[in-house]
Amino acid sequence: MSLPPERAAFYLTHLRSDSARLAEVGRMGLPAEVPSCPGWTVESVLRHVAQVYLHKLKVLELAALPDPWPPNLDERDALELYDETRAAIVVALTEAGTELPTWTFSPSDKTSGFWYRRMALETVMHRIDAELAHKVVTPVDRDLALDGIDEILTVMLGGPWWEEGDTKHPVNATIRITSAGRSWTCRVDATSAVVTPGSEGDVDAELFGDPDDIFLWLWGRRDLSMEQSSGNDTAVQEFRARIAECST
Rank of each mutant, 00 (worst) to 15 (best):
P107G: 15
K110S: 14
E80A: 06
F215L: 08
A88D: 09
P107H: 13
D213N: 08
D74Q: 04
L46S: 02
F114V: 00
D233Q: 12
L81F: 08
D109Q: 08
V52G: 01
E131A: 06
R76A: 12
E227L: 12
Y11C: 05
K58C: 14
L62P: 14
D141Q: 10
F215Q: 05
G220S: 06
D210I: 05
E95A: 10
V90Q: 03
H169T: 01
V171M: 03
S183C: 12
L132F: 06
T104D: 14
D83E: 15
E206C: 13
T248D: 00
E75N: 07
L73I: 08
A120Y: 04
W161G: 15
A244C: 08
L73R: 03
L121Q: 02
T102P: 02
K135F: 08
A9Q: 10
T234E: 10
E122V: 00
I177V: 01
R182C: 08
E131F: 00
I128E: 01
G113S: 07
A23G: 09
D129W: 02
P35A: 04
P160N: 13
T138F: 00
H14I: 10
G209Y: 01
S225V: 02
F105K: 00
R142T: 13
R7F: 10
D74N: 07
G29H: 13
V188A: 12
L157G: 09
E151K: 02
D141T: 14
L12D: 02
S199E: 15
R222F: 10
S199W: 12
A120C: 05
E122N: 05
D150I: 01
L157Y: 04
M28E: 14
L12Y: 07
N232C: 10
T102A: 09
